[in-house]
Amino acid sequence: MSSEECILKTESLRKVFKVGFWGRPVTVLESLDLEVCRGEVFGFLGPNGAGKTTTIKILMGLIYPTGGKATLFGRPIGDRDAKGKLGFLPESPYFYDYLTAEEFLRFYGHLFCLSGTRLEQRITELLELVGMTHAKHLQLRKFSKGMLQRVGIAQALINDPELVVLDEPMSGLDPVGRKEIRDLILRLKESGKTVFFSSHILHDAELLCDRVAIILKGRLVASGRVTDLVGQGATRSVEMVVENLSPEGLDHLRPLAEKLLLQGSQALVVLKGEAQVGDALEIIRVAKGKLVSLTPHKSSLEELFIREVKGLQPNLVEGQ
């Protein structure tokens, strides 16, 4: 990928907070390098407290980095032109709850110097996009969390941004709400926008992202395409369900299996790998068993994530 396609970039980004009365330094981010390219959905993953929100806050110009460099659209953070092409939804957003959805979007439109019919048209479009047209005259204080999240996304899109940054957009939502946000992100991708979102819900990231970066304790531990990351050193297993297999057949299968469970006339066999599938099928054929299902299990992002967390924080993960 050529460097001019990268619209979000951080180099050795570092942030140290001073806490307490004596200003004890706490390093939240350590030398973070990220590159997000135009048109991709990029997942920024990590457990709570890993430094995701801190990174996003630096990118949005809410806090200043202690060291390193960050650019948006090739310009330094805080640049007005770059901010004009940016949409941002903070984590668990709080908005001016005395405004109605329509007034709320109009206010944000004014901040981009939008006005008149163009703005009104945009507000109508966005309320429709996020499915909130019915609530346009309702004050935000009467909104549910899912509704707030949706209207929050609408505010992030008011300027038709090229890059949309969402901080934990799925957190605290029910499964329906999460699916709605996922669909919205996919729609944004289809319309050519770049989406950068942070999450600790890996399943969502796996479904949505072209590329991900995993951050732990302020350090980048992995980044790349989801398929590449998941493939790296991942052990694949194959799960079979077999019916009416004779005891001899079971005995022959046992050496090939990592796990073998019997339930009535069925047996669940987890093979050590793809290499054993051929032999196992032959044993079943000879023993006149019936194959009910055969499912290959790929290593998931979650397994990779846990592995990385375990590497850095063994006690924490085992404790959980």
Partner: peptide, 10 residues
């Protein structure tokens, strides 16, 4: 945290 969405705008 209402300021987050304002300061991130131009």
């Amino acid at each position: 945290r209402t300021i987050y969405t304002i300061v991130s705008k131009p």
